[in-house]
Simulated assay, not measured.
Amino acid sequence: MTERSGATQYPIPPAVEEAYGPADLSSMSLFGGGFINFGHWQGIDLGRPLTEHDRISSQQAMYRHVLGTLAPTGELRALEVGCGLGAGAAVALEESGLDHVTGMDIHPQQLERAGQANARLLARRPEQLRFVRGAAEEMPFGDGEFDCLYTVEAAQHFRDLDAFARETARVLRPGGRAAVASFFVPGADPAASGRLAELLDTFAGGLDVAHTIPSLVGTLERAGLADVRVSSIGTWVWPGWDRWLARTWEPGTWPRNFLRAFREGILDYFTVTAERPGA
């Protein structure tokens, strides 16, 4: 068994360091409830003024959707890669019947906030929830330590998908399942990266990376993962996200271009699942 311990030596990209450190995206009104994702808006009426409750519900629904693709039941151990403030890890533990959830994040300030935000849950269920520092490309865990692994809206920050895929395959037990949910370039269009940088400041500034779905699928398969399945959920993400943005951002401002990029076919939101072969 390969055991890794200690703080990761993998560098935090500067844009990620700023966004999740001093800038603290979680404190922005665009998010809420301790989550940082665009939301899964299926079932929410977008024809009426949206509320803070709607926004939080959409983010909870994203986690429920992702966890549903894993169908975790019984005494399973789960790892969330890029856990942020740990709100999703709390949903996973309290709603999915998991025996133990580890939230991992590369950013020490996020982990500090996660500990504070989940202090009561940690005190009530100390043997079932923990937060650990580590990088997606360098996970501080033993081989086969987890039954399932998921990551929600963090993969767009990963600099090395191959390393992430190898680590995912390593820390999953045989028969373990992984789910990746985030926004990616649907095809292999070489011009998409430049166009996204024109439209969206997060790509231009290096916070987000224009990874493609073919690239992600290829890395998972090269790492030895099997039964890789890709599902677009953009229909349930982008219109709702844009409707929420409209509360504070005018048409033509760069955050409203996420929906534009989706309509141009250069960006979409996906859930991608895979399994480590064996039983």
Rank of each mutant, 00 (worst) to 15 (best):
F184N: 04
A226I: 03
A192I: 00
D201S: 14
L70V: 11
H65D: 01
A92V: 04
L122A: 13
T235I: 06
G265H: 03
S58R: 10
T8G: 14
F203Q: 06
D208T: 13
S58F: 10
Y63G: 11
P22G: 02
A274F: 05
T51A: 09
M1F: 12
A87G: 09
A279H: 13
R263C: 01
M139T: 06
E94P: 00
A210E: 01
L30W: 05
R263A: 03
V171Y: 08
E75S: 15
E153R: 05
F158P: 05
A179Y: 03
R247F: 08
H53D: 15
E75A: 15
D105L: 04
A165W: 07
V171E: 10
D242K: 09
N257S: 14
V16F: 00
P11S: 01
H100A: 02
V16A: 05
A117Q: 13
Q128F: 00
P140S: 06
P186N: 12
G144D: 07
G175T: 08
A274I: 02
T2E: 11
F164V: 09
L30K: 03
Q9R: 15
M28L: 08
E94T: 14
R276C: 08
G206L: 03
E17I: 00
G240V: 00
W244D: 01
F158W: 13
A92R: 05
A136N: 06
P190I: 05
E3T: 13
L79H: 12
G205D: 11
R276M: 09
E145T: 13
P277W: 13
E264G: 03
S215E: 14
A181M: 12
R133S: 09
